[in-house]
């Protein structure tokens, strides 16, 4: 019995040979150990009936366990050999390209919009949308633009007859949302906006905008800064510096512009940031009480903040795209550059 156990121990050592074995050697090992007639393990198992019941149990258990291990190891090795082309040894060049299928991808601006909306989703904002054809009331006057005011100059519009125009920002959806839903309101509003700027390297008559709006009781300037600074740090990097400075928009008061540390030079000043070290990311502010009042919201009870930003420009800044027209050319060579990661390359 002792001999049998020693033989089993010795056989177990040979398990290690299996993962290195080539096809022929594997076949030999199989015969040598598990062969139906002369296999070493087969012989041990054949000797079992002649043993004492106690020894039979001990040797039998060990022998069967070893048999299972051999069978598993051999099967695994066989699978491996099948997978690695047998021809590898026969000189096939494995650096030749694999077989592909066509891949597509989302436009870079869509990716940036998605990314921005996702971050705001984490901060409790849902998406809202509205029509591209607007009335002057929604596009301007409900947003507290005074009639015949120079503030309208920056909003040079495409008119469609009467008081209809192509929206110059997605801000009118603020009004539509506040008219329809009671506070608390937390929405982001992605979509196209239209201004009468001819195409050049940095202008386009049509551009993507994401507007945001939060209205509730007790929302303060601190909440406003916190939300947008959090966005910037999530969208860029956790240590991105952010600053807020005064600005003017008829529909916010106080109004602010948010800059982030230039993503190209890191804040030391370069041509892209006009040596300032800062990149303008969004215009924003506390919702003007007149806007709330225009929507029938009690401006003493409720307050809020709003902002608007341009994903085209943000994409250009982050990916160092020199000309906005590249975003509209739909050149497959351009689209393919950004198709790999749905999250965009720079993150």
């Amino acid at each position: 019995m002792r001999d049998l156990l020693a033989a089993l121990t010795e056989l177990r050592e040979r398990l290690h040979e299996i993962p290195q074995a080539d096809e022929r050697r594997l076949q030999d090992l199989k015969t040598e150990i598990l062969g139906r007639k002369a296999g070493a393990l087969t012989k041990i198992l054949a000797a079992l009936p002649g043993l004492e019941p106690a020894a039979k149990k001990q040797v039998g258990g060990a022998a069967n366990a070893l048999k299972r291990d051999f069978e598993a190891a051999i099967a695994a090795r066989e699978r491996d050999l099948k997978r690695a082309p047998a021809a590898a040894a026969a000189g096939v060049d494995l650096t030749m390209p694999g077989r592909a299928s066509w891949t597509g991808g989302l436009h870079l601006v869509t990716q940036v919009v998605n990314e921005i909306c996702e971050i705001f989703h984490e901060l409790g904002f849902t998406r809202a949308v509205g029509p591209h054809i607007e009335t002057e009331r929604y596009n301007f006057y409900a947003l507290n633009f005074p009639k015949d005011h120079p503030a309208l100059d920056a909003q040079d519009s495409f008119y469609l007859g009467g008081d209809l125009l192509l929206r110059t920002h997605t801000s009118p959806v603020q009004i539509r949302t506040l008219e329809r839903y009671p506070p608390p309101v937390r929405v982001v509003i992605p979509g196209l906006a239209y201004r009468r700027d001819p195409f050049d390297a940095s202008h386009s008559p049509v551009f993507e905008q994401i507007e945001g709006l939060a209205v509730d009781e007790g929302i303060s300037f601190v909440d406003f800064k916190a939300t947008l600074a959090t966005f910037a740090r999530r969208f860029f990097t956790a240590d991105t510096r952010v600053r807020f400075r005064p600005s003017f928009f008829p529909f916010t008061e106080p109004s602010a512009e948010m800059d982030v540390q230039c993503q190209i030079c890191g804040g030391t000043g370069c041509a892209a940031c006009k040596q300032s070290g800062w990149m303008e990311i969004l215009g924003s502010g506390m919702v003007h009480p007149a806007v709330l009042e225009n929507c029938g919201v009690d401006s003493e009870r409720y307050s809020g903040f709003a902002w608007g930003m341009g994903p085209d420009r943000i994409a250009m800044a982050r990916h160092r795209i020199p000309d906005i027209r590249l975003l509209f050319d739909s050149d497959v060579r351009f689209l393919a550059q950004f198709a790999a990661g749905a999250k965009g390359g720079a993150r």
Partner: peptide, 23 residues
């Protein structure tokens, strides 16, 4: 100075507007 104001995120109430189905 706007920079003098803190920017610490505070709890907020979820909004009443559902995520736009078309999006």
């Amino acid at each position: 100075g706007y920079d003098a104001f803190p920017d610490e995120l505070r709890p907020y109430r979820p909004g009443t507007v559902p995520d736009a189905p078309v999006e």
